[in-house]
Structures are given as C-alpha cells and as structure tokens.
C-alpha cells in the first residue's frame, strides 16, 4: 500500500524538480506520452503512470521499474506533451537516482551495455565497436550472437578491430574520474555510498 502523507507526498516531485528543473505536477494524465511511446508496450509501468507515481511519491515503484531503462530518449513524448514537460529528461533523471540509490536493474542487458560502452570510452577515449559487441555478448552468455553479421561487416571493411584512440587518454580518464562524483548531488545516496 502506498501511504500518502503530508511529510513525504511531494518528495519525489521535488527531487525531480531540483535535479532536472522539470515539474511533474504539471501532468494532468492525458496519456499522450504512453500513446506515442514506441516501447510503452514493453514497459512494466507506462510513461503516464511514471508521471503519476512521481506526483504521489511512488518512488520505489518508479525507481525499480523497467520503464526508466527502456526509454529510448527518442523525445516523442516531450515533443507532444500538452503540458510542456520534458518527459525524456525526467526519465534521464530517474535513471540517475535509481543508479545512485542502488536499485537493481530490471534490464541488465541494457544497463550492462551502458556500462561496457562507457568502459570502452573511458579506456580509449573513443568507442571500440567490436570490443563492445564481443564483451556484451559474452556478458549475456551468447558469445555467438550476431556472429554472421560480424563476419559480413568485417569482409566489407566496416570493422576497425583496433578502434580509434584519443592521444590525451589521461585527460579522458580524469574526465571519468571527476564526473563520476555526480552522485554527490543526491544527499541520500552519499550516505549509502559512505556506508
């Protein structure tokens, strides 16, 4: 049961507003976001339900939802929202809160892909497409996935096995090291990190 009370009912809305500048309480539940979302059918909580839950501090359900990870950031919802809420930006924000607060990902393939993607960029400064695909397929225990495709790409000279590299890799490492401290924006999560 979701308990509504004066102390906490606006907490989720306020956090989102502080982090993204977007005010979810403007939402009046027309449902146009869900109607236009290409992946709404795959989500456990629809986009308009995310907005509603955010309005009534249903934060656990939102932060554990697959929705925030299935959002493709295609901005269809933001473009058509009659209340001018940048819903895609709200999803971005919710993802970050979810990570910072240590919610397990209901979409490990997607979150894992993001991690590997960023690891590649951290290592080389640029994305190594081949390495990323191999590592991802190993991680999801399907090492032969897309193998035919890879052979095809290779024969067409579209795969650069060594990938490009940035000369100033030290700086890239620093960027990652410094930026990772983004979690400090969230007081709750700092405490969790400290523990």
């Amino acid at each position: 049961m979701l308990q509504l009370n004066a102390e906490t009912v606006h907490t989720c809305r306020d956090t989102i507003k502080r982090l993204s500048g977007e005010d979810v309480s403007r939402c009046f539940q027309c449902g146009k976001c869900t109607a236009g979302c290409p992946v709404a059918i795959d989500m456990d909580v629809t986009p308009n339900q995310v907005m509603r839950l955010a309005q009534i501090n249903g934060r656990e359900r939102v932060l554990a939802s697959s929705t925030i990870w299935l959002c493709l950031s295609c901005e269809t919802c933001s473009t058509r929202c009659p209340a001018d809420i940048d819903i895609a930006k709200v999803m971005d924000t919710l993802r970050k809160i979810s990570v910072a607060e240590g919610y397990p990902s209901p979409e490990p393939a997607i979150t894992g892909f993001h991690r590997l993607f960023l690891a590649s960029v951290e290592k080389y400064g640029r994305l190594n497409e081949l390495e990323l695909s191999i590592k991802h397929n190993l991680a999801i225990m399907k090492p032969t996935k897309d193998i035919r495709l890879a052979v095809g790409l290779f024969s067409k000279g579209k795969i650069n096995p060594f990938g490009g590299k940035v000369k100033d890799r030290e700086r890239v490492k620093k960027i990652f090291a410094e930026s990772q401290r983004f979690v400090k924006v969230y007081p709750e999560s700092i405490e969790r990190e400290a523990e």
């Binding site: 993802r95 993001h114 640029r126 994305l127 000369k167 960027i175 990652f176 410094e178 930026s179 983004f182």
Partner: peptide, 25 residues
C-alpha cells in the same frame, strides 16, 4: 584535433556531468 567520443547514448543515461564533459571537450 584529438576528438573523443561524445558519450551518446550511454553517458547521459547515467551522468549529466560526464555527458556534458565529453561533449564540451
């Protein structure tokens, strides 16, 4: 000169600062 990856589409999904820093560099 010596460009780096812009971080799309993984960086902005996880860290605002990282996404911005990669792009701004």
């Amino acid at each position: 000169e010596d460009w780096n990856c812009c971080g799309a589409s993984s960086a902005h999904e996880t860290s605002e600062e990282l996404a911005l820093a990669l792009a701004v560099r």
